[in-house]
Design a protein around this nucleic acid. Structure first.
Lengths: 182, 182, 182, 182
DNA sequence: TTATAAGCGAGACGGTACGTCAGGTCTTCCG
DNA sequence: CGGAAGACCTGACGTACCGTCTCGCTTATAA
C-alpha cells in the first residue's frame, strides 16, 4: 500500500534505531520522527512496531539473496558447518541480531506476527535445511533440521552461553550421528 | 522487603491474570488492581512485570519440589522420555506455559531479568539434565543436554509445530545416537 | 495550541468544580475527568491547576467586558463607591471569589503565575483605578489606588471580617481624605 | 500533646527547610526526615504542614517578645513609621517572609488554620495597632488600622511592587490624613 | 487558468500505563 | 510501652505512546 520510497525510508529509520541500542524501546512515534513521516503513514501499512521490524528484517534478508540459498558442495558435514557458522554470524550481527530478538519477543504474544514469521522467514529456511539434509541421505530430514537449528536458538534466545569456537564442529558431528549418516 | 503475605497475594493475582488470556497485556496497574495492592507495593519489591512473572514462576516451581529432581531409574532412554514428556506438559500448561513465554519474551530486552532466569531457573535445570546424562555415561554431557532441550524450545518459542505424539520417542532416540550411547 | 473548543470545555469544567466547594482540592485529574478531556490536553496548554484557574478567571473577566471599564460619572466619591461595591460583589461571588482565592494562594509559590496575574489582571485594573483618581485631581494616584484597594483585599484574604454594609462609604470617605481632595 | 523537646526539634526542622528554598514544597515526609522524627509523631500534634508552619511562626514571634508590643513614643506619626518599617522588615526576612507567605496561602483553603491565624496572630496585632491609634486620638481606629496595614499586605501578597524607600513615610502621612488627625 | 480534490505532514485528541511522590493509617520491633 | 521505622493503600503527579482524528499545505488533474 505504501509507496516503495516510503517503505525504504521507514526501513532505514528502523535499522538506524535498532543499531543504536535498546530495540525494545522502539516505538511508532520514534520511527515516525526518525523517518520524517507521519504516524498515519505508518499505521496505513503496518499494524505494530513488530510488523515494521519484521518487514525491515525481511527486506534485509531479500536484499542479500532473493530466496534462501544454502551451500551444497556435496559434502554434508562441510555444508552444515558452513550453514551453522553463517547462522551464528547473523545472530551476532549488531543490527540483525537485536532485530530478530525483538521480533521473536513480540511473536510470543502476537499470533498474526508469528504466522507471518513462520510463513515468510522460518518456514522457507527450515525447508531449505531439511532439503539439503534429505539430499544428503538423511531420513527424518525435518526433525533432524530441528535438531540442528534448535540448540543454536536455545543458546541465543535463552542467552545461556556465547557461541564459543569449536562448538560448531562438535555440534555438526553430533547432528550427523543423530541423523545416522556417519 | 515485602511481607510474605503480600508476595503470595501478588503471585496469586499474576497467576490468575496469566490464566485468563493475553499474557503480553499484563501491566503493573492490572496486577495491583487484581491483587488489591498499591502500585508502590509492587515497585518496592519488583522492577517490572517480567520480574513479577518470573518470581511467581519460581515460587510455583519451588512449591512443587524444593529443588530440581529428575527421574533416575537407571534406564537413560526411559528417563529422557519421561523428562521430555514432562517438559512438553509444562510448556502446554495453560498457566505455566504463557507465563514462561512472557518471561522469555521480556528476557530478550532485559539483561537483569535474563541473568536471574539463567541463575535460578535455567541453570539448575540444565545442570540436572547434564548430570543425569553424565551418570548415564555420556561424554559431552552439557552439549548433549542442549541438543536434547534445544529442539523442544525451538518448536515452542518459534511456534513452528505442535508437539505431536510419537515425536518425543524419536527425539530421545536421536539424542541417544548423538550422544553415542546406543 | 489548544483549540478554542477545548479551552471552553476546560473553562466550563473548572468553573463548575470551583462552584461546588473546595477550590483547594482541584486537581489536574479532576479537571480532565470533569471536562471529558485527557490529561495531556491540559498539560499541553497549561502548566498547573493555577494556570487553568487563572485562564478561566481571565476568560470570564473578558467575557463581561473586553477590557477594564470603570464608572466615570464626574463625581469621584460616587464612582469610588460604585467601584468598591463592585469589587466586594465580585469577591463575594460564589464562583469568582473562590477562584480568585485559589489563584492568589498559588501565586505565593509560583512566580510565573504571579507574573501573569500582575501583567494581565492586577496591573490593568490598578491602572484603571489610578487613572480615574488622576482624572479626579488626585496627585499620588498610584499610591492612593493601593490605599483604596489594599484594605478590601486585606479583609478578604486574611479573612478577618465580612464586608459589612456601611463600611464601603466610610472607606471611600477615608480614601478621599487621604488623597487630599476633600 | 507533643513534648516540648519534640516541638522544638520539629520547629527547627521546618525553619531550616523554609530557609533553603521552596516553601511550597515542604511536606510531612520531608519534615519528619529532617527532624529525625516519625510521621506518626507529626500527625499526633499537627493536622497539616500549614499547621506546623504556623506553629513554628508563632513560636518564633513569641521568642522575640511574649506578646505584641508596639512603639509608643507619644508621637503617633513617628510610631506608625517605626511600625511600618518593622512590618516591612519582617515580610522581607528570608525565613519569616516565606513562612508567612505559605501560611497565608494555605489559609485560603483551610478554615481551621485561618481561624487559628486570626485568633493568635492577626487579631492581637491588629488590636495593638488600633489601640495605639485610639490612644493617638483616632476615632475609627479599627478601620484606620486596616487602612494602614492593608496596602502593605496588598503589595506583598499580590507581589505587585517591592517596598521602595520613601514609600513608608508617604503612606504614614496618607494614613494620618485619612484618620483626620492632621 | 483556475477550481478541486487527493495525499501527506503535523499534531491535537481521548486514552492507558508508566514510575514517582506524598498523604494518612497501621504494624512491627527495638530501647 | 512509647516511639522510630517503614509497609501499606490511596490518589495525584507529569510523561510517553497508543491509535484515531482533523487541519492545512502541497501537487496533480479536470473544468
Amino acid at each position: 500500500m505504501a509507496r516503495q520510497r516510503t517503505r525504504d525510508t521507514v526501513h532505514r529509520a528502523v535499522l538506524s534505531l535498532a543499531g543504536e541500542g535498546r530495540v525494545g524501546a522502539i516505538t511508532m512515534e520514534g520511527i515516525a520522527a526518525r523517518a520524517g513521516v507521519s504516524k498515519q503513514t505508518l499505521y496505513r501499512s503496518w499494524a505494530s512496531t513488530g510488523a515494521i521490524l519484521f518487514d525491515a528484517l525481511l527486506a534485509r534478508s531479500l536484499d542479500d539473496d532473493g530466496s534462501v540459498v544454502l551451500p551444497d558442495s556435496g559434502d554434508l558435514a562441510h555444508d552444515l558447518e558452513e550453514l551453522a557458522t553463517g547462522m551464528v554470524a547473523e545472530l551476532s550481527d549488531p543490527t540483525h541480531g537485536p532485530l530478530l530478538r525483538a521480533v521473536t519477543a513480540e511473536m510470543q504474544s502476537d499470533d498474526a506476527l508469528a504466522e507471518e514469521f513462520r510463513r515468510l522467514l522460518l518456514g522457507p529456511q527450515m525447508k531449505a535445511v531439511s532439503d539439503r539434509l534429505r539430499r544428503g541421505g538423511v531420513a527424518e530430514a525435518d526433525d533432524v533440521a530441528e535438531l540442528f537449528v534448535g540448540p543454536v536458538l536455545h543458546r541465543w534466545l535463552l542467552r545461556s552461553r556465547p557461541f564459543d569456537t569449536g562448538w560448531v564442529s562438535a555440534h555438526v558431528a553430533r547432528t550427523m550421528r543423530a541423523a545416522g549418516v556417519v
